[in-house]
Structure formats: C-alpha cells, structure tokens
Amino acid sequence: MTDKSLQIDHQMNIKIVKEKLIKGIIYFSVFLTFGIVLWILLHIVFNGVIKSGNIDIIGNESILPMIMNTFYIVLLAVSISTPIGIWTAIYLNEYAKDNKLVHLIRFAIQSLAGIPSIIFGLFGMIVFVVGLNLKWSILAGALTLSIMILPIIIKTTEEALKSVPLSIREGSMALGASKVKTIKGVVIPSALPGIIISVILSIGRIVGETAAIYLTAGMVPRAAVSPLDSGRTLSVHLYLLAKEGISFEKAYFTATILVVFILCINLISNRLAKKFSEKLKAN
C-alpha cells in the first residue's frame, strides 16, 4: 500500500469513529430525556403510594378541601374563559382578514402566552385582590387564571376550526344557511372534540399552576364555600408542604395526586385527538 492510501484510510477511520461518537451522544440524550421523565414519575408515585399509609386521608390532614378548592377555581376560570376564547377563535378563523388589527390581536395573544405566571399573579393582586377588593379569594384566583388560559383555548380552538374542511361550510351555505348559522350549526359541532381538548388542556394548566394562585387565592386550608372565601389549591398545598418541610409524606401524597391527574388529562386529550383526526379523515 502506498503512503497516500494509508493516509486516506486513516482519515476514513477517524471519520467513522467521529460519526459513531455523535450517534452515541444522540442516543445518550434520548436515553436521558426518557430516563428523566421515568425517574420523576416513578419517584413521586412510588413514594406517594408507600408513604400514604401513614396519612389520615379522611380526618384533619385530609387533602379533600384542597381538591375541592382546585375544582372550584377550575370551574370558574373555565366558565369565564371558554366562551371568550371560542369567540376569539371564531373571529380569527372565520372573519379576520389579513390586516393590522388582526396582526395586533395575534401579537397580543402570543404575548399573553409568553408572560410568566408570577406576573399574572401580580396583575391579579393589583386588579382583583386589591382593586376590586375581592381580597384573597377563589374568585380573584379564578379571574387571574382565566386570563392565563385564554391563549391556550384560543390557539387550540383555532386549530380545530382550521381543520374543519371548507366543503362542510360551503355545503351549509349552499343550503341557504347564513354564515353565523353555518358556524353555529355545522363548524362548531365538527370542531367540538378540538374545543373540548382546549378546555382539558387549560384544566391541566390551572391544576398545575402555583405562583399566580398563591398571590391571588391565598392559602387557607379549608374548603371554600363562597367564591369570596380564600382557599388553598392542591399545588399551593404541595408548595407550602415542601417549602416549610413540615411533612414530606403528605407532600409526596399530594404530588402523586397531581401527577396522576396530569397523566389522566394527557390520556384523555390524546384519545380525543386521535378520534378527532379519524373523524376528519372519514369526512
């Protein structure tokens, strides 16, 4: 063999080793991503289940009030935000033209989605807690969160509306239905699974939210009766337990409930999304 071919051989070898190394790094990264998720979920749920035996689930230490408060805030925030979100999505997808105002609306929605929750918390404190004198209450928390989930509802609903085929709209209009009748009678029903997904996603966001609720709904560990009562949600409860280090057993248990809830939400929205895309394909 000549010197030159040896050199080329050598270069090829370096190249092959280099490519193997890069592939190795890629596989390692995937393993890390996957491993981290598994580690977090197993660690929380495993400890949560094991240590829950020591907790008096029904008595004084019950987390039932926190679950009820969370539910209360979810219900209020979703009922405030869903109609506004859907109407906005309808405007953007069915009416909007490519003009300055529409660009501004889209910019506003995008900006809302990028604001950190602690800023929403500050805003809620200034306007709802102090300004409207709602004090630390379920209602102040729900109003704040309804702003936070608005971008999610608008975006997901708009995607759903977009995926409704034009032929469906044209068919309805050809039968003499007006635009609004077409939207209400044909477009919305076809996009309903997507709209439901948007609500489910925002429920997940509310249940997991801490900073904004902490500053607006307060931390009274009792089930709120009136929307003007202060009430601690599950995630605020977990935060306080972890921060004060009072009981990691209870913290694990609360975290487990949160994680299981998020798992369910993921499962349901995935199922719905699958059904939705199958239905659209059938159309």
Partner: peptide, 14 residues
Amino acid sequence: ELLAGIPSVVFGFF
C-alpha cells in the same frame, strides 16, 4: 408531552 404537563411545583419538589 407528559414532561411538558408536569406542574412546576412538582418539578421543584422532585
């Protein structure tokens, strides 16, 4: 997607 859904307070606790 699941990782994206985990609440931030759970990350903190973990």
